[in-house]
Simulated assay, not measured.
Amino acid sequence: MRETTSILPLTLADVTWAVDGRTLLTVAAAEIHKGRRTVVLGPNGAGKTLFLKLCHGLIRPTAGRVAFSGSGGDARAPKRHAMVFQKPVMLRRSVQGNLRHALGLAGVGFFDRRRQVPAILAEFGLAELAGRPARVLSGGEQQRLAIARAAAVRPELLFLDEPASALDPTATRQIEELLLRLHGEGLTWVMTTHDLAQARRLADDVLFFHGGRLLEAAPAATFFTAPRTEEARAFLESRLFW
């Protein structure tokens, strides 16, 4: 990291987000800790993606506080966090062009970009695709590029919104192994998923949402063996549909 002071933990306190007087998300208290793999669970429409957007600073809370350590309370202040969306946005340029653009936005100079991009392509298994237009890649290849593009700027924290939701088992495993490797290299990440098996494989901590509310925040082992709420128990037993 370029800076020695960590932006973590990320703390949310008494957070609500409302539109036209309707509250769509409520988080009484939550923390994202350095070095932990946090998986956000809940049925469709539970508020998982809204939670990521609030944490990343794409939307601001109607009330409450979303604060990174040392950020003065502004989730957008230290751009040492990045986000990968469920459907990644590919720029109208090549695979290597997408990486160069991300590095350029992060302030990496021209010659450093030329030096770094081949190494990044090799690291993420994209070297053979370097000159291919990013928008014609398969879903799994686009998601790998999206993660590579986000990780290339060396964030401390990465948010991922269902990064393997539309992928086949092989591509899903590639994404999971990639995330585990990045975590092993020091990247803290927060990921939404609807795949309980995937959550069991990857999670250190679980945040469980239902109806726009954070109902449980617990270590994964505790959540999966002894959930506190009836909603969580129903979700784990596939009895909670919305």
Results as ranks from 00 to 15, higher is better:
184 G>H: 03
103 L>F: 09
104 G>V: 02
91 L>N: 06
74 D>S: 14
112 D>K: 14
202 L>Y: 12
106 A>D: 01
176 E>V: 11
119 A>I: 06
113 R>C: 12
145 L>T: 04
183 H>G: 06
80 R>D: 08
145 L>N: 05
82 A>E: 05
66 V>F: 10
141 E>M: 02
59 I>M: 13
145 L>A: 06
86 Q>F: 09
135 R>D: 14
65 R>T: 15
196 L>V: 14
77 A>I: 01
71 S>V: 02
127 A>Q: 08
187 L>C: 09
84 V>K: 12
113 R>F: 08
177 E>P: 05
195 D>E: 12
102 A>V: 04
61 P>L: 09
138 S>R: 10
160 L>W: 05
160 L>Q: 08
69 S>G: 11
127 A>S: 09
192 T>V: 15
64 G>I: 11
191 M>A: 08
195 D>R: 13
58 L>T: 00
118 P>R: 14
100 R>T: 01
110 F>Y: 15
150 A>L: 08
119 A>G: 11
104 G>W: 05
118 P>H: 15
118 P>G: 13
89 V>Q: 07
153 V>C: 06
91 L>E: 01
72 G>D: 00
139 G>E: 09
191 M>P: 02
168 D>W: 04
128 E>W: 01
192 T>I: 13
107 G>S: 09
139 G>K: 11
198 Q>L: 15
122 A>G: 08
66 V>P: 13
170 T>W: 13
180 L>H: 05
200 R>I: 01
121 L>D: 00
131 G>L: 10
193 T>Q: 10
143 Q>F: 06
136 V>G: 08
91 L>V: 02
74 D>W: 08
175 I>F: 02
90 M>R: 14
78 P>V: 09
74 D>T: 06
157 L>H: 04
179 L>M: 15
184 G>R: 03
170 T>G: 07
133 P>E: 00
188 T>L: 06
138 S>Q: 09
78 P>Q: 00
186 G>K: 13
68 F>M: 14
174 Q>C: 03
202 L>M: 15
152 A>L: 05
123 E>R: 15
90 M>K: 09
113 R>G: 00
201 R>V: 01
169 P>C: 04
124 F>I: 04
95 V>D: 03
68 F>P: 07
73 G>D: 08
78 P>F: 03
109 G>K: 08
117 V>C: 04
127 A>I: 02
120 I>C: 01
78 P>M: 03
59 I>A: 13
167 L>T: 12
